[in-house]
């Protein structure tokens, strides 16, 4: 069980670690290849490992009993997933993970990760920094969901995801937007039409065009 240490270069979290820590990580990490659509782990199952995307993209999601799926995030190159439960003794996977496209991952067992943190405080501090960033994000998310209307959340989503001159552009279906905002596509459809009626956006077949940035910012605070 080991991997080419150069693969660690693709994970920014590991980039600044001292050489002995990187060597130790390379000793315990294994490379895993997942095909498009492959389920990598299942939410609720005992956590066995943390993962780091070195190529491709992985959708992190939860299924509700009613069958609705909420996409929590999409882990792309360089980002970890299933890290939080891997740091706990006897932790369970918080969410399921599925490869969006063919993906290469680094897999480090929960046992090995915690063993290396005990040996190398630099590794522990690096992971704490990442977790602190995630906590900041989740705090913002709780505020967004609890204090803003769906329309306000949709406005914020459009502002956060509007792109400029990027090719290829990230594209979204109404289902995907709904999953990101914790609602259903009908609500997103109505929300988009309301924003069109308010003159804040235009729908131009395959484009959602933000025409009034300030108006959308004001809407996002409602």
């Amino acid at each position: 069980m080991s991997c080419d240490e150069r693969l660690l270069d693709r994970v920014p979290l590991f980039a600044g670690l001292p050489a002995p820590v990187r060597a130790a990580l390379a000793q315990v990490a294994t490379e895993r290849v997942s095909g498009a659509g492959e389920l990598i782990l299942l939410g609720g199952e005992p956590c066995e490992a943390a993962y780091f995307v070195i190529e491709g993209a992985v959708r992190i999601f939860r299924d509700s009993l009613s069958g609705r799926q909420q996409v929590l995030t999409t882990a792309v190159r360089g980002t970890p997933f299933n890290l939080v439960p891997a740091l706990r003794t006897g932790g369970a996977n918080h969410a399921s993970a599925e490869a969006v496209v063919a993906s290469r991952l680094l897999q480090i067992s929960s046992h090995d990760l915690r063993r290396l943190i005990r040996l190398y405080p630099d590794l522990g501090l690096t992971l704490l920094d990442d977790l602190a960033g995630k906590l900041d994000h989740l705090t913002d998310l709780v505020e967004t969901i609890s204090l803003r209307s769906v329309r306000g959340r949709l406005a914020r989503f459009l502002l956060d995801n509007a792109e400029k001159d990027q090719v290829p552009r990230r594209v979204w279906t109404q289902d995907e937007i709904a999953a990101r905002l914790g609602t259903v596509r009908d609500v997103i459809g109505r929300g988009l039409r309301a924003l069109v009626d308010a003159g804040l956006i235009q729908l131009d077949r395959e484009r959602i065009i933000v025409v009034d940035r300030e108006g959308l910012v004001a809407e996002s605070n409602l």
Binding site: R169, W172, T173
Partner: peptide
């Protein structure tokens, strides 16, 4: 079936994906 949308600013040029 997928109806996809790119989210763009008004000043952007038309999407090459059109």
């Amino acid at each position: 079936i997928r109806c996809e949308y790119a989210i763009v600013w008004a000043e952007d040029p038309p999407s090459p994906g059109g």
